[in-house]
Nucleic acid binder design. Structure first.
Lengths: 196, 196
DNA sequence: GTCCTAGACATACTGAAGGTACGCCAACAC
DNA sequence: GTGTTGGCGTACCTTCAGTATGTCTAGGAC
């Protein structure tokens, strides 16, 4: 918490804006949420919003960054508890699926993210957080010889995309058995990658 | 071509709107294109646009439908030339990668599609076109025993997502070797699925 | 304590965008 | 020839992101 009445108030306002906009973005989607709703929910005015953020898209960017961080931390916490890199890959992927199934995370991270910021910037952010974990563990596994030698980047994108789509499907599905099926299919896919 | 002067003019206007909006959507993105630009490019006014389409989103929907159809046809044409289901899967996936690498297709199909129409509707359209080919051939391969017995749907989503992401990565990449690498990685992934 | 500056907002406004209401005119039916 | 309807243009409305400017007070200088 910062020192001084002013700095504290500033921080409170900023947090309220981020919190409320995240709630609204995740439930209604970026396009369907007006700035007036956000500032009303945060108990401030548009003057405050534009004092803290240069545009609606930048506010979204901060929200997305926060969500990405949280997901990455969940993955890291789950994976770091394992010894072997291979197990880290498996439980890391499962953790990603679990975290990304949350509709609130989804709408922001997977649906609106690429459209609002553009795919390039979205990818960059992804690679700075959860995507990095995946790329790193794959690189280790290839070096170890657990996975056949090959360029890391294409494989990372393939797996990352597979999990993103699976997460979206799971969130839309109503059958609870689907989660088990998807996890099983993903595990099979990963196992199939391993050298015999 | 429909009969009558009126019906022909109607069709021409509609086609001009779809053609120009597709061009603009694919180059600038849905959000960055105004209706005024579209109608100006098509040589009509907003009155004409709203006579043919109920909203900007519906116009986009028609454009997306058209793009999906084209991709699906390219895949079908490539795959149908092969004898075995396994080969159909391989060349079908490659055809999808090739078609989706076109930035004009991409922006509409993979970036804006889910955000504008919502993921559920986007998925539905996908499953009616190119996604169906994938699901069908996978079902056949499982029944044949070429791929281990498992639910078809999760696997379809995993592979579909993997290819979508790979296509987006390829379009953003500048190195021409990436296409070969991605294709190789995808082929390895598919081969790994096959029962030994 | 006083003064002054600057930062943290609120208020009022602008431009542009999507969408609507309505009017016009040529094509088609009869 | 006359009435009707479909196809489209024009003018307008509403909403929304973004801006310009005012206001008030915390906090440092003295």
């Amino acid at each position: 918490m910062p020192q001084g009445v002013r700095a504290q108030q500033r921080e409170l306002t900023r947090q309220a804006l981020v919190r409320e906009s995240r709630r609204l973005f995740s439930t209604l989607g970026y396009g369907a949420v007006g700035l007036s709703e956000i500032v009303a929910a945060a108990g401030v005015t548009k003057g405050a919003l534009y004092h803290h953020f240069s545009s609606k898209a930048e506010l979204f960017r901060v929200v997305l960054e926060q969500a990405q961080q949280e997901v990455a931390e969940r993955i890291a916490a789950t994976a770091d508890a394992r010894e072997s890199s291979w197990e880290q890959l498996l439980v890391g992927c499962e953790a990603f699926l679990g975290a990304s199934t949350d509709p609130a995370i989804q709408r922001i991270m997977l649906i609106d993210g690429p459209a609002v910021l553009g795919w390039a910037e979205w990818r960059e952010m992804n690679e700075a957080t959860s995507g990095r974990h995946l790329a790193e563990v794959l690189a280790v596994l290839i070096e170890e010889g657990t996975i056949p030698a090959q360029p890391v980047e294409p494989l990372t994108h393939l797996l990352s995309g597979a999990m993103n789509e699976a997460a979206l499907w799971l969130a839309a599905s109503s059958d609870p058995a689907d989660l088990a099926d998807a996890t099983a299919a993903l595990t099979r896919l990963l196992e199939a990658l391993r050298v015999p």
